[in-house]
Design a protein around this nucleic acid. Structure first.
Lengths: 255, 255
DNA sequence: TAGTGGTCTAGACCACTTA
DNA sequence: AAGTGGTCTAGACCACTAG
């Protein structure tokens, strides 16, 4: 069980990283346990022979990572692992799109239709107003793994349409390129069971589990512009997360 | 569409918060768009009449939130929204446990059994070794919504057992109380379809969608101590996430 | 070479908690 | 009253990028 922080790297490691990892190690080893008070900032200054601002920066990192809490006038305390804050990233999902060698995005259908009640509610438009319906299929190694159904507001004045019809739009969207018109989005994840129609699209059996990822994107005027759902076969997607005090060291920068 | 930052609060708002939100507003408004370079630190110092460290703190926040990137020797640049980093938390899941008025944890069964291949692999013990099997049912308003099946390593020397049999263990676990023996954990989320047995436990129909949350917890010696699965009815759980540049202002502290 | 961000100093004043 | 963390100053030196 090697401790990764202690003798790591050459002397070029910044002091605030070294001190931060030093404190992390003590917590991971159980020297400081949940509820304990860390040495005060001034003590740490003397111990490590650095200025207060450097110590503060180290503690700020532990604070941001949820490892400690600070109480003004009282001290800095070790927090218990906090399952409440376990987070999962959609990286596993987007990774499917990024593997260009294996993954292919196929545009099944494009048409203009009238918004039904659900679509009009989501896109904040009148029922019956025209919307663009896109249906895509994401293939991995030739097998369909994700079905995407997306409604876009129909606005002839906005040149979104042509760009969005591109096969590569999804990839560009996830990479953050060429979407200056999108400001923010909301996504929800639900469990579902494939019905015969979806199973047909995905070339698999009905009654199999799947994830439904619903998305709603807004433009810079806070108007919804895109609402849709990804249906992703449950056997190709799994979300992972870790909680607690790992041994992973602090990185120099955020790349 | 009110801008929340501009005239917010009294003058007690720290300068680094005010400057951070000011920059956020300009990005949300489209004054600075993806790829633009922000004014340099020294310029911002002059503009806001603060010291370099204060500007750096503001920019550090934007950096941590993924809104900008910094390039040494070049400048600070606005990033495009990055769907790759969308994350969702298990808050919606743990919230079910925290609502003490509606939620009740019922211990269905406790027994000592021998580890099969899967359990022994997860808990890193020999097949056939004794393990404790716990089965719990989480009821909300009297209806079962989550079924929990957990295997614990059987170690008479460790007083984990009695504490873990408590009905309130789950709640305590999620709150981070009384788990000084747990150092870290891993969790995965999968979609599944209820089989008749699970449907019976959950008092619902088979073939309905559900989430399977698998967990593996380690002690301070990095030995696995608990492996299990939560089966959560799909109709009671939905994960949410947001991406992009919201209007939400920076908070003073991290509570 | 000039300008940029990355790190760090050695203090200061304040608000707050604890005794 | 003493100690704590929260904010902030006015610089410094360094590594890096660009013209």
């Amino acid at each position: 069980m090697p401790l990764s922080h202690s003798l790591e790297k050459n002397g070029r490691e910044p002091a605030y990283i070294r001190i931060c990892n030093s404190l992390k190690d003590r917590i991971a080893e159980g020297v400081y346990v949940s509820g304990d008070r860390l040495p005060s900032e001034s003590e740490l200054c003397r111990l490590h022979k650095v200025s207060p601002m450097t110590i503060r920066r180290s503690i700020r990192i532990l604070l941001d990572q949820g490892i400690v809490t600070t109480v003004q006038g009282s001290g800095t305390f070790v927090r218990a692992p906090h399952l409440n804050q376990v987070t999962f990233s959609l990286k596993e999902f987007f990774d499917i799109f990024k593997d260009e060698k294996r993954t292919q995005v196929k545009l099944m259908d494009v048409c203009i239709t009238k918004a039904d009640d659900m679509v009009s509610a989501r896109l904040q438009i009148e029922p019956g107003q025209r919307v663009i319906l896109l249906q895509r299929l994401i293939l991995r190694d030739g097998d369909p793994v994700i079905y995407h159904r997306e409604f876009l507001v129909y606005d002839p004045a906005r040149p979104v349409i042509e760009a969005d019809l591109e096969i590569t739009t999804l990839y560009g969207l996830f990479e953050g390129r060429g979407q200056a018109f999108l400001k923010r989005g909301e996504m929800t994840v639900e469990a579902m069971v494939l019905d015969p129609e979806l199973a047909g699209h995905l070339n698999t059996q009905p009654l199999l589990p799947a994830f439904r990822l619903e998305h709603l994107f807004y433009d810079f005027d806070d108007h919804p512009v895109s609402w849709g759902r990804f249906i992703c076969r449950g056997d190709v997607l799994r979300f992972k997360a870790t909680v607690g005090f790992g041994i992973s060291g602090q990185k120099e920068n955020h790349p």
